[in-house]
Write a protein that binds this DNA or RNA. Structure first.
Lengths: 103, 103
DNA sequence: TTAATACTTGCACATATGCGCAATTATGTA
DNA sequence: TACATAATTGCGCATATGTGCAAGTATTAA
């Protein structure tokens, strides 16, 4: 793990490590289809502008992706990328049993 | 996931989401035996007092545990607890194949 | 008992962060 | 066109955070 990878991972964890942003992520966990920003606002009791900024931060860290549809912006999780990074960290801390393959 | 659990997880991720603290965690990943604080200082180019505070933050979030030996303080990772929490989040985002059990 | 070692704590400081409100942009609708 | 809707951006503000230095505490060694 080089310096720049470590920094990227730290940025990702920082993006996830804020209550309202983590709430957004959990909300998106349960969405099979992309959600628009205003709908996501409902899960945090903050101003829409704040949610907008949190979604921007999550987008910049690759946690979510955004697509425009009309005047809406639809957000969805980058499930594979994020879960893989979290598992890689978990594995570095404690190798999972599955990694041994057989026993 | 209730509000307080979500908050705890956010705090954990925030503790991990800082470059120097994450460096400490990675350094401890490779230690089979507990490391003393001054040894850990070497992996961050900051004042010892700063490392001390980072280790305190990691301890408070349950990432590391500390034991005193003479005038040293030995730190080691709470490997199981931390990796389980990270995997739980990863699984919420994208269930791992292993969870399906068979196929 | 004096000095060295291994940390931690108090303090000050600069910067980052989260927040709300108001204004703005972009798109759709009457 | 004029207006409504969806969302973002600019601004100011309060608080949190990371940092270094100096001083303090605890333990060991001389």
């Amino acid at each position: 793990m080089d310096e720049s990878q470590l920094n990227d991972l730290a940025q990702l964890l920082k993006a996830l490590g804020e209550y309202n942003r983590l709430s957004l992520v959990y909300k998106l966990c349960n969405c099979s289809a992309p959600e628009n920003a205003m709908c996501l606002c409902d899960c945090c009791s903050v101003d829409a502008s704040v949610t907008s900024r949190h979604l921007k931060a999550l987008t910049q860290q690759g946690v979510v992706k955004m697509e425009k549809r009309g005047r809406e912006r639809l957000y969805s999780l980058n499930r594979t990328a994020v879960s893989e990074k979290l598992r890689a960290l978990a594995d570095a801390i404690k190798p999972s049993e599955h990694e041994f393959g057989y026993r």
